[in-house]
Design a protein around this nucleic acid. Structure first.
Length: 420
RNA sequence: GUGGGUGUAGCUCAGCUGGCAGAGCGCCAGGUUGUGGUCCUGGAUGUCGUGGGUUCAAGUCCCAUCACUCACCCCA
């Protein structure tokens, strides 16, 4: 009997798993430099938080949540997204009672019950950022710039930024009604007709060509923005241009979650199979109130870690051989006494900050050297009876095959010097 | 939830109109009893996804089932 990872999930294993850490670090670094503090929230929350925060009309809530009753009869849901939990944490701890905006970032697992395909899994990882409690286009622009810098730091060149505004509580309802009227006149299937009444903006996102063809004359949000929203949007665009972040206006860009208002954006890439977004976000001025808090206009984004790795793979940015190289030094000991001494030597090296591994088990010289080679280490340390007698170790450069004898007492400093 | 494709060694896959289970890579060992990578030789590993059916005989044909995968819907 063997087990496998649950349907729709997968494992990160070496060497590729190194990229998970690297991507998280690269995406988080710009945030830390911009004053975002780290927040970690539970992987599960009260189901009601998502129902109200994300919106009952969304697919995420209506069919993609992992929901169960705990032993106390409480309805619990594995988080399908990170924003609502962060807002909940901010409200719970009163962070918004201090200086605003509250700037936070997070990194963690998300769960959605969906049919898996390339770039879309039931368990996935995101790095997210939220700036809460301030209505300022500079904040929207700041977040977009920080995400852009994160992608750039990873070497990605194929990420494109799509930008739109969804309006606010003044202009959005007017637009919504106009769009509904237009959509009701189209020839659409039943599920789509239902969507017109529940969440009409999402119809614009339909990928089917027979639907897209009919949408050519659809009213656009951008034409219905009120004066405030228009000015806000123009300022965001101006700041992005000034910061030299290229973007494309996409008047059809909408988002799947109900809480978005005004600024909406998506980072897209062509290497994700049928998916297109590596990251996305926007402004959510009404979310706090929806879950019982005070008005707290905010903006944020979430970037998919596994999708970012897919994008990097598509651009040929992954180097498995380099990722497999974990140590710089590899010990090869011959005989029991030498092995004991090598164990201490390797421990000393690690203590001194030098990555070191050694051959375990009962491999012969040849096998141990082979292991040294496979480890990707630059140097092999060879220690046998002769060397022990001489109180020395053979240091072999595996790239040049050059070998020198170094006194045991000097090995650590010698290697530290060579690896500088 | 719906549709297509694929399940054979650790990995990538071949296996024709049914007739002894295969290759490459990887792994282990030897060639070299203290030296890796290249090279040579040898070796181990399979419930051919699972269950049933047809047949003298099934990896191969039929049915069912499960898994994986890609796509739709939707989304990071």
């Amino acid at each position: 009997m063997t087990f496998q990872a649950p349907k729709g999930t997968f494992d990160w294993i070496p060497p590729r798993s190194e990229r998970v850490l690297a991507v998280r670090d690269a995406l988080a670094a710009p945030l830390r430099r911009a004053g975002y503090g780290y927040v970690e929230t539970p992987s599960f929350e009260d189901t009601e938080l998502f129902k109200r925060g994300v919106g009952e009309s969304t697919d995420v809530v209506s069919k993609e949540m992992y929901t169960f009753l705990d032993k106390g009869g409480r309805s619990i849901t594995l988080r399908p997204e990170g924003t609502a939990p962060v807002v909940r944490a901010v409200l719970q701890h009163g962070l918004h009672n201090g200086q605003l905006p509250v700037k936070l970032w997070y990194s963690g697992s998300q769960y959605r019950y969906e049919r898996a395909q390339k770039g879309r899994y039931r368990h996935f990882w995101q790095v997210g950022a939220e700036a809460l409690g301030a209505e300022d286009p500079a904040l929207d622009a700041e977040l977009i710039v920080l995400a852009w810098q994160g992608y750039a730091a990873l070497g990605l060149t194929g990420v494109r930024l799509l930008l739109n505004s969804l309006g606010d509580r003044q202009c959005r309802p007017v637009y919504r009604a106009a769009l509904q009227e237009f959509l009701r006149g189209l020839d659409l299937d039943e599920p789509t007709r239902e969507r017109i009444e529940i969440n009409p903006l999402r119809v614009l996102d339909d990928k089917r060509s027979e639907v897209q063809e009919q949408l050519t004359g659809a009213p656009l949000v951008i034409d219905h923005l009120c004066g405030d929203c228009k000015a806000y949007h123009e300022e965001v665009r101006w700041l992005l241009t000034a910061a030299a972040v290229p973007y494309a206006d996409d008047p059809r860009l909408v988002r799947g979650l109900d809480y978005y208002t005004r600024t909406t954006f998506e980072f897209v890439h062509d290497g994700l199979g049928s998916q297109s977004a590596v990251g996305g976000g926007g402004r959510y001025d009404g979310l706090s109130e929806v879950i019982g808090g005070p008005p707290l206009p905010s903006v944020g984004w979430a970037l998919g870690v596994d999708r970012t790795i897919l994008a990097m793979e598509a651009e040929g940015l992954l180097d498995d051989a380099a990722d497999a190289r974990l140590v710089d030094v590899y010990g090869v000991a011959l005989g029991e006494e030498a092995k004991r001494r090598m164990f201490l030597l390797v421990t000393d090296l690690r203590q001194a900050g030098v990555g070191a591994d050694m051959a375990y088990g009962s491999r012969g010289m040849k096998g141990a050297m082979k292991a040294a080679d496979r480890s990707g280490a630059r140097f092999a340390l060879i220690l046998g009876e002769r060397d022990l007698a001489a109180e020395a170790v053979q240091v072999k450069d595996l790239t040049t095959a050059e070998q020198t004898e170094v006194p045991l007492t000097e090995v650590v400093t010698t290697l530290k010097g060579k690896l500088k």
